Amino acid sequence: MRKQQWFAMTQVSPLPSPRLEFCPATLPAAVYVDADWYAREMATVFAQNWICVGRLEDFGRGMMRRVQVGAADVIVCRAAEGGVSAFHNSCRHRGSELCREAVEPLGKLIRCPYHAFAYAADTGRLVATGHAVPTADFDRAAHGLLAVAWRVWAGFLFLNLGKAPRDLVADVDLAVLDHWPMQGLVTGHVWRAEIACNWKVFWENYSECLHCPGIHPELCELVPVYGQGIMAASEAVGWAGEVPAGNLKLGAESWTVGGAACGPVFSGLTEAERAAGYQFVTFWPTAYVVAHVDHVRSVRIVPLGPLRTALVVEWHFSAETLAQPGFDASEVADFAKIVLRQDGAAAEMNQRGMLSPAYRGGTLMPEEYEIHRFHQWLLQEMEVSR
């Protein structure tokens, strides 16, 4: 579920309530199961938006790694000197894959294992055609690898398949994590899971907290407002403008099993950021990042088909925290894993119910304003990209 921040950074007028003033219809049931609709999403939403593929420093230098960007198989090349390039994993000769394994060594050239066509690893320029001897009409310059745009934000690598990529945008200002030491964080734990649901079902579950009291007892204890079925005080019926200073229960500092920080609190945080306990940053359709006071968690959503979705969850720490005697990053991850497993089971339950021939679509409640916004965004992205 998505948890918005409505605490007061200073004594200013409170934000208006985000509650919907009507109960709109959901998307039709077919869009969660139909293969053709899914293919359209891959060709539009996932082909035109920035897709997070992980932390840049987790891409080894002198290596190339395969990643999935919507329907495209892409290779990310990291030069020994640290330079980055990305290309579709398809030879321009006859289409063979260039990188066969998940990760392979990278030199100055990317050589096709089929017919030995070779390309410059930094630019994708065609350098050699193996044993083939082209005729004079063959334009080498027009047969380089097809590049994929890339950019880095806060140490995360994003790829974009579009010909003219738009700016990277999130649900909040990208400067919101400027007080966290994002560039220097190190990935300490990785957890992968597959869930039997459409990718949108997982995002919708993330976008509301009506399910929290019945699905997340541990989370509701740590973040009391969730126990009311809302993500923030401003969602309550009759909200009078009171804005709490923090989100966590009294005495808790972070999302750990006991609520204690797992290491030193990041020194650059303001008092308000420490009091809040966390900050969510959401990048549709690909990922969200949760910055806690002592570590950062990232969750990537990777569609595998109309009814299958992969989650790649990573926990990132300062080198100082990782160096603590006896430190175990997997123990820090235990609390979020409890919540994520509960979310996965809820999303699968929701998907199974939507497969009923009796279900044609549903109705959103006023507290599900973020789902409504997600639906409007999705439909606009599919229309604009057609």
Score class of each variant (00 low, 15 high):
M1D: 02
W6G: 06
F7M: 07
T10A: 13
V12S: 15
S13I: 12
R19T: 05
C23W: 11
L27G: 01
V31Y: 04
A35T: 12
W37N: 08
Q48F: 08
Q48V: 09
N49P: 03
I51A: 10
D58G: 06
R66Y: 05
G70T: 06
A72E: 13
V74D: 00
V74F: 01
I75N: 00
A79T: 12
G82E: 03
S90M: 12
R92T: 06
R94E: 03
G95H: 05
E97V: 10
R111H: 01
R111T: 15
A121M: 01
L126E: 03
L126D: 09
D139T: 11
G144R: 04
L146V: 15
W153C: 00
A154K: 11
L157K: 00
N160M: 02
L168C: 07
L174G: 03
A175V: 08
L185K: 06
T187A: 11
G188R: 12
A193H: 14
E194D: 15
N198Q: 09
N198C: 10
W203L: 12
L210R: 02
P213V: 02
H216M: 13
E218S: 11
P224F: 02
G227S: 05
A236N: 10
A240Q: 15
K249W: 08
G251H: 05
A252F: 06
G259S: 08
P264Q: 14
A272M: 09
E273R: 02
E273W: 04
T282D: 09
W284M: 14
P285Y: 09
P285G: 11
R297D: 10
V299G: 01
I301Q: 03
P303I: 09
E314R: 15
E320K: 11
T321S: 12
L322Y: 06
F327M: 12
A345H: 07
E348H: 06
P366Y: 01
Y369V: 10
I371N: 00
H372D: 10
H372K: 09
F374Q: 08
E381Q: 14
M382N: 04
